[in-house]
Simulated assay, not measured.
Amino acid sequence: MGSWRLVSYEVRDGAGVLVGYPLGEDAMGYLVYTVDGFMSVQIMRLGRPRYQAGGLGDGTDAESAAAARGYVAYAGPYHVERDSVVVHEPEVSLFPNWVHAPAAREVVLVEPRLELTNPETLPYGGRELTAVLRWERFERRGSAT
Results as ranks from 00 to 15, higher is better:
R113P: 01
V35G: 06
V87C: 05
H88Q: 13
S40R: 05
A68K: 10
V41Q: 07
G20C: 07
V7D: 04
A103F: 11
G16C: 06
L46T: 15
H88S: 14
E89G: 05
G37W: 15
A65D: 15
Q42K: 01
L114M: 12
N97D: 13
R113M: 12
R50S: 13
L114C: 03
T145M: 00
A15T: 15
S93N: 02
T60S: 15
D58C: 01
L109G: 01
P49R: 10
G37N: 13
P112E: 09
G76D: 11
N97T: 09
E128L: 13
D13G: 06
Y33H: 14
G125I: 00
H100D: 06
V132Q: 03
P49Q: 09
A27D: 03
D13I: 00
R137F: 07
E91N: 15
G24R: 11
L129A: 04
L94S: 12
E63S: 02
A101E: 15
H79S: 10
V80P: 05
S40F: 00
E111A: 11
G37Q: 12
Q52L: 14
V110S: 13
L133P: 00
W98P: 08
E81V: 09
V17C: 09
V11M: 08
G142I: 04
V85I: 15
M44E: 07
A65G: 08
V72F: 12
L18G: 02
A53G: 05
A62H: 11
E91K: 15
S84Y: 05
E63Q: 14
G2V: 02
L116W: 10
S3R: 04
Y78V: 09
G24P: 02
R82N: 09
R48K: 13
E81H: 10
T121Y: 06
R45M: 06
V99E: 11
A15H: 10
P22N: 04
R137M: 02
E139C: 03
L133R: 14
G20S: 09
G55D: 07
S3F: 06
D26C: 06
S93K: 03
Y30E: 14
Y74H: 15
E63L: 03
A62F: 03
W98A: 06
L109K: 05
V32C: 09
E63A: 01
W98E: 13
V80A: 12
M28R: 12
E115L: 11
